[in-house]
Nucleic acid binder design. Sequence first.
DNA 1: GTTAGCATGTAAGGAGTTACATGATTTT
DNA 2: AAAATCATGTAACTCCTTACATGCTAAC
Lengths: 197, 197
Amino acid sequence: MARRSTNGMLEFAVLGLLHEAPMHGYELRKRLTAVLGPFRAISYGSLYPGLKELVAAGWIEEATDPAATALTGKRARISYNLTAEGKEHFASLAGEAGPTNWDDEPFGVRFAFFSRTREDVRLRILQGRRSRLEERVSALHDSMTRTRERLDDYTLELQRHGLERAEREVRWLGELIATEEHRQRTSPPDPRPAASH
Amino acid sequence: MARRSTNGMLEFAVLGLLHEAPMHGYELRKRLTAVLGPFRAISYGSLYPGLKELVAAGWIEEATDPAATALTGKRARISYNLTAEGKEHFASLAGEAGPTNWDDEPFGVRFAFFSRTREDVRLRILQGRRSRLEERVSALHDSMTRTRERLDDYTLELQRHGLERAEREVRWLGELIATEEHRQRTSPPDPRPAASH
DNA sequence: GTTAGCATGTAAGGAGTTACATGATTTT
DNA sequence: AAAATCATGTAACTCCTTACATGCTAAC
């Protein structure tokens, strides 16, 4: 079990995507790009070795296409599907709500798989992200109002814009949190994530 | 000349900061953090070896504090200052306006040193960044309106928020570009960056 | 039949981090 | 005199990218 695995985010996202359906590497990469955003797309040089490690860890399995394989002798494409351990492992990753999830990129990935995340964990992640951003807001605010340590006009403008963006995201998170809290109050206390097969 | 240097951004930022005044590593790191933002602060394990490389490249020089050094026998802190080649090298980096500067992080660093960048180069970087973001906007727009390939509700919400943020940055850049263009029309054609000592 | 895109990989290396290690100076 | 913070570094490792290499399949 668990040999030392790829990166957290790649692992998490691949496992999450394979819940939908088995996929081969090339397609996985496209879906990954949709989740991570086209500006931090993963390269094949990262993806394929990563998949190998997930196989070695026992979380996914290779499967060559049933029919057309040995028949033609041609190299068939490899489909990956989740194992039971993989599902379990994903569920355990999805249950963590620690500060690792509050940075920009991890948060985005975690958020993208919120529908497979328990409600209470969702809420804690949103709140953690928000307080992280509130820290950023007040740090920027301080840095800008300290008249000592004169900053470049352009640096200042950059900070002003960064501050506005952070404040905007705080508001956005506020709305999401309100929605989640409302959902929790009104829906029956269902402790199970929507993930069974 | 130029032995193979650290990373572009670290190199650029260090050289840019040392225009103001000589500094030692520890302080440099604090200023760097102010420029790069506290969320992508550079570590000492990166900074000190990087400084060594800049020294080896001949762009900066070490200088131990004049008085208090040999006198006490204590280890003195090391100040770094720009060499003439370093200034030249920075100017040449600051003159490049290619697509390398249009990603999130490089753009931020380039922007932070705009006051040492030629006006026409500033304008080209702002425009490049804007068209990069416009691509992002239309890619997101497409991805969201394609009703096929059903995305997760949360993924969708993330994209919606990302789209809004990108559109907002496009508008911000529009204003900056207008300001720069105005500056160029009204001020005398001064081809020299404000950098002399 | 050839170009474009699908599909899978490997080797080398870049850019950075963490953890460790050490010592000086300032503040409480 | 202890604690905090200033100050400088190294070794090992992680994660990822680029460049390369191969071959299949669909479209023009």
